[in-house]
Write a protein that binds this DNA or RNA. Structure first.
Length: 156
DNA sequence: GCCAACGTTGGC
DNA sequence: GCCAACGTTGGC
């Protein structure tokens, strides 16, 4: 069992959008970064736990939980010329990009904000708060995952 | 909207 | 293989 943080811009795809999907599950398409792709392709497993993070918005932070619901498979949006994620260099016979399905688990009553996370010593090693870290899919430690849930629920 | 930091591309 | 130019990310 592994733990991840996955970023999404709520103006493009928010946690409420995920809830609204059939079975509260959707494919996580549009990843065009090799490191993030490799995590999905090589390391993620069905059932892995995900912190759902809203970036580039009014209230930046972790808004809820999800889980990995499929193995990695080819990201078909790379072959669609009309899609903004179109990548002419991705050959359908040898797809360059993959995605996984993500299933909604829980929406927090409140957002655990980036600002708040930055102020907590125990979370200072999270990739999220490292300078210049832009990866949209990041591994997190189990205790970090638990810590953020506890913050959201006011247990701490 | 700004801009720092980063990843990718492509000429050499 | 180097590195400048460019495009993107994402906090503020």
């Amino acid at each position: 069992m592994k733990y991840w943080l996955m970023k999404s811009e709520p103006s493009a795809f928010s946690i409420d959008d995920l809830i609204a999907c059939e079975n509260s599950t959707d494919h996580w398409d549009g990843i065009r970064n090799y490191q993030a792709r490799n995590f999905m392709r090589d390391t993620m497993e069905i059932g892995d736990k995900v912190l759902f993070y809203h970036s580039n918005c009014d209230e930046v932070g972790v808004v809820g939980l999800a889980e990995v619901a499929s193995e990695a498979y080819q990201d078909f949006t790379a072959f669609d010329e009309s899609c903004k994620y179109y990548d002419p260099k991705s050959d359908p016979d040898k797809p360059r990009w993959v995605m996984v399905d993500i299933k909604f688990v829980e929406k927090f009553d409140r957002t655990v904000t980036l600002k708040e996370i930055k102020q907590i010593d125990e979370l200072s090693n999270m990739k999220l708060v490292q300078r210049g870290m832009r990866l949209s899919i990041q591994p997190v430690e189990e205790f970090e995952y638990d810590f953020i849930i506890n913050l959201a629920k006011g247990v701490l």
